[in-house]
Amino acid sequence: MTGPGASPPSDRAIPASAGIGLRFQHHEAVLRDRPRIGWMEVHSENYMGGGVPLRCLDAIRRDYSVSLHGVALSLGSADGLDSAHLDRLAALTQRIEPGLVSEHLAWSVVDGTYLADLLPLPMTEEALEVVCRNVDIAQARLRRRILVENPSSYLRYRHATIPEWVFLAEVSRRTGCGLLCDVNNIYVSACNHGFDAAAYLAALPVAAVAEIHLAGHTRRDLGEGRSIRIDDHGSPVRAEVWALYEAALARFGRVPTLIEWDNDIPPLPILLAEAGKAERRLAKAGEARHADAA
């Protein structure tokens, strides 16, 4: 893995290696131990105030490349974006100079109420236009390309007309945004809705995919032979998701890959070990590409 000392602080690019989602519980350990990890990603909203969290992020940013991952910009809001929220994100982006900035293909705000979840969009032409308009506004305000992440999904609307993978590819084509391919989310949604996860990967434009997410999920038994997968980020990455990740690497090549762990957060060494599993697969993907080229 790339050691933090290997990159000068001014090099803000996210390396094509494994990173970890940094949560408050690990601030102290990271600042004390300076673990060898390629990069870190934080939730933008956790650093929109001042005080200790922001000072910790400043300190971490001096030694590591950092990515900002937002959960509340609500790219799918029919009302448009909350300009105050976008201003706060712009201020944070200016301060941290992140290597990547990402948001979700989802909505969470309506009539000024924030519903604290990444809520599903109907995959319609109207929603496509709304998302593209909001991505355009966000990219203009932030003066940079953002990545849009595929969500995990538990329901579909009757009037949806566009497959999610087509929708995402079209958002990228129209706005120039990149894509954050959450492999766990694809797996969860494929199980919940019965589509082919490999076909989803195959439909994403290779050049647009600039980051991959991995996380754990649970299978909730609903009785009578029914079950649903819940993307709860509270456990190690499942074997089936590792397999899909290998397929993603075969298609997209070496892409910065993040381990997300947000519930039942383990000690830092366990999180780093999970990132190590991704790093080994990334290395293999690099070797395979090298062999292909030779």
């Binding site: 809001s77 029919a78 309506v110 009539d111 519903l115 809520l119 329901l155 579909r156 609307y157 009757r158």
Partner: peptide
């Protein structure tokens, strides 16, 4: 419309008795 979907979804999340949005969900 998208706005109608989002308002209906909000009503359902904040009040489990208001499930009109369920009719739009497969």
């Amino acid at each position: 419309t998208l706005r109608e979907i989002q308002r209906g979804f909000r009503d359902s999340l904040l009040d489990s008795g208001r499930e009109a949005i369920a009719g739009a969900i497969a």
